[in-house]
Design a protein around this nucleic acid. Structure first.
Length: 595
RNA sequence: GGCCCUGUAGCUCAGCUGGAUAGAGCGAGAGUCUUCUAAACUCUAGGUCCUGCGUUCGAGUCGCAGCAGGGUCACCA
């Protein structure tokens, strides 16, 4: 790596010239802005005080010294306190040659023998179908997993299905009351949508009951507790936890409908899991932990029987861990799954891809684990992401203002088909191939749209404007890949083999720009992983594609007459295509050979 | 009210550990197809980086205060 060489040389020069002790890692290099000549820039201001010389003088002396030490440095220039190094073209040329057949360019191979990083994502509730918010979660979870794997981690993807709790009882109860035995088969509805319908149904009738009670003079809070539907749902939860057969049978039946529906959506999104946990199997372990905490005296029971953890010493409140009727809450089961997961995998790290509305929850979870005497609470990392908002605010399942995942994917596919037909470039593809292409482009547009945004930030989705296919988008990058592959295929037909590296005397400006961008990929992937940010990879992929397109526009490749130059450019094309493919793979996006 | 997150062009977003004159896309305007795939390329217009104070050789980036938006503080998940 040329950057490392430069850093070492700068550090050595600092010591020799000014007796300044600096580690190579502490030397900050940046890529030179395009208005200036040079490839890498060192800002010398940090050293002028100790060197006791003017910035220009320091820069010139360092520049001369580094040029002596590093053969790849062919020139340098100084502007104020900025020292710009130029790297010789033959370095860039041989860099392309070295990677001309490297299918793993920019990626590290995962080390299977390392302790795994367990990434939990998706974690759906079984009472509502997936919507756009879940899509962000799934895409982030998948992509972060791929990103860590691309940096050599042994990653396990897990899902925790939220299949029990009061919310499930609500949809079961509503189905019993108002369902008339409706099934996915009888209604033709996807299972998760059918169950979701009854969750909404419950809410509707429940609200009516509350209204009724309030009109009889009851306070709202009281009415919400007293409403017969709510009382019955709570009773059902109790029966469920006691293992009541009738309740369990219904629960199994409705859940199986939901799972079939979820699987379909996961398949369309292209996400999967190494292991699926069910809350119904893990919450008991959580309850055991709570009991243990009581025995240890780190938790306490209130007069009404509910169990709490006192976190006032940590600046937080008291946290409920078991209800007064003994049933468990969200936190209870999360304690259980955390323990189970560290045992199952001997994990190095547990990553939870969960929305930022649960920041507080995870803060508490770590603290409670600590109180229970576990020292691995610090292994938990909450990958917190912002919500997807609509122009008029946040999505609310119960108010029907959600963008349904299945609908959205279908709409994207329809748009992809429409756009492809307009361009009319896909003659000769079979119906099946076309269908696959439309799906690939639809998902490329959707995934890139979601993943290019910094996870921490809320993002806006406007259903009135469909997701773009031009400009800074997934299809733009997919298109660039298809164009490049077309060139490489034609080159092969012409008998231009890319087996041997070729040497060319010099590069034009566009070539150099593309190669430098290409050269950045390993560093970008590494820092994206450190930041758990697929967005950094997405933005890089776009920069690379853009840089290539600009080169493509005004540099002949197959039209070039000099065979060595032509071959070199074809090799460059091949490496760029591979880099695009590899970055997009990290995002979970496939790239077509033609479109 | 306490705590957390966010605030950059008309809109949607980049801007990594502080570094040169703040960048893309969309939208607006003007060009480029006798095609290595125009889903592209080139150019123009567009900015009080929410405000103020501070730290420093240097602040969109760090600190403090304020303003605005969102989240959270549930016997919901």
């Amino acid at each position: 790596m040329i950057e490392n060489k430069l850093q070492q040389a700068v550090a050595a020069a600092l010591k020799k010239l000014y007796s300044i002790e600096a580690t190579p890692e502490s030397v900050v290099l940046q890529t030179t802005k395009k208005e200036f000549t040079g490839d890498y820039t060192l800002v010398v201001f940090p050293y002028v005080k100790q060197a006791r010389k003017s910035p220009e003088m320091v820069a010139n002396e360092l520049g001369a010294a580094v040029k002596e030490m590093v053969t790849e440095v062919c020139d340098f220039n100084v502007i104020k306190g900025f020292l710009n190094f130029s790297i010789a073209d033959n370095y860039w040329v041989s860099f392309v040659g070295e990677n001309r057949n490297n299918a793993h360019y920019g990626l590290k191979t995962p080390a299977a023998d390392e302790k795994p990083i367990v990434v939990e994502y998706s974690s759906p509730n079984t009472n509502k179908p997936l919507h756009l918010g879940h899509i962000r979660n799934n895409l982030l979870g998948w992509s972060v997993s791929e990103l860590l794997a691309a940096n050599g981690a042994n990653v396990k993807k897990v899902n925790l299905v939220n299949d029990r709790g009061i919310h499930i009882c609500k949809s079961m109860l509503a189905w019993l009351r108002y369902g008339n035995g409706e099934t996915p088969e009888s209604s033709g509805m996807k299972g998760d949508h059918l169950v979701g319908k009854y969750y909404v149904e419950f809410d509707k009738h429940y609200k009516e009951e509350v209204k009724q009670l309030m009109s009889q003079g009851m306070e709202e809070d009281e009415a919400k507790k007293q409403a017969p539907l709510m009382v019955e749902a709570q009773h059902m939860l109790k029966r469920w936890e006691e293992g009541d057969k009738e309740v369990r049978d219904l629960w199994n039946k409705m859940n199986s409908w939901v799972y079939a529906g979820f699987d379909e959506t996961y398949n369309r999104l292209g996400v999967s899991f190494d292991k699926v946990y069910y809350e119904s199997n893990t919450y008991l372990l959580g309850k055991e932990l709570v009991q243990k905490g009581l025995d240890m005296g780190v938790l306490f029971r209130k007069e009404d029987g509910s169990v709490w953890c006192d976190l006032t010493g940590d600046g937080l409140d008291q946290k409920l861990l078991l209800r007064k009727d003994g049933t468990s809450v969200y936190m209870t089961q999360d304690l259980g799954t955390a323990l189970l997961r560290t045992q199952d995998f001997d994990a190095k790290q547990l990553i939870y891809v969960v929305g930022n509305e649960q920041d507080y929850h995870f803060k508490v979870l770590k603290l409670v684990l600590g109180k229970l005497g576990f020292d691995w609470g610090e292994k938990l990392y909450h990958l917190s992401y912002g919500m997807v908002e609509l122009p008029n605010g946040k999505m609310k399942s119960r108010e029907g203002t959600v963008v349904d995942a299945d609908d959205l994917i279908s709409e994207m596919e329809a748009t992809a088909e429409e756009m492809s037909r307009e361009h009319g470039k896909n003659d000769g593809m079979s119906e099946q191939q076309l269908k696959e292409l439309y799906h690939m482009l639809a998902l490329g547009a959707l995934k890139y749209f979601i993943l290019k945004v910094d996870p921490a930030k809320n993002m806006l989705f406007n259903p009135a404007e469909s997701i773009d296919f031009n400009g800074n988008t997934g299809p733009f990058i997919q298109y660039t890949h298809a164009r490049i592959r077309s060139i490489v295929r034609k080159a092969e037909e012409q008998g231009i083999h890319d087996q041997e590296p070729v040497s060319v005397p010099s590069l034009n400006e566009k070539e150099r720009a593309v190669i430098k961008c290409l050269h950045d990929m390993p560093g970008v992937v590494a820092s994206a992983a450190e930041n758990y940010s697929p967005a950094m990879v997405a933005n890089y992929a776009y920069d690379l594609a853009k840089s290539f397109n600009s080169f493509y526009q005004d540099t002949p490749i197959l039209r070039e007459e000099d065979v060595a130059v032509k071959t070199f450019r074809v090799q460059l094309c091949a490496v760029v295509a591979q880099a695009i493919k590899n970055t997009m793979h990290i995002l979970g996006i496939e790239v077509p050979e033609r479109m």
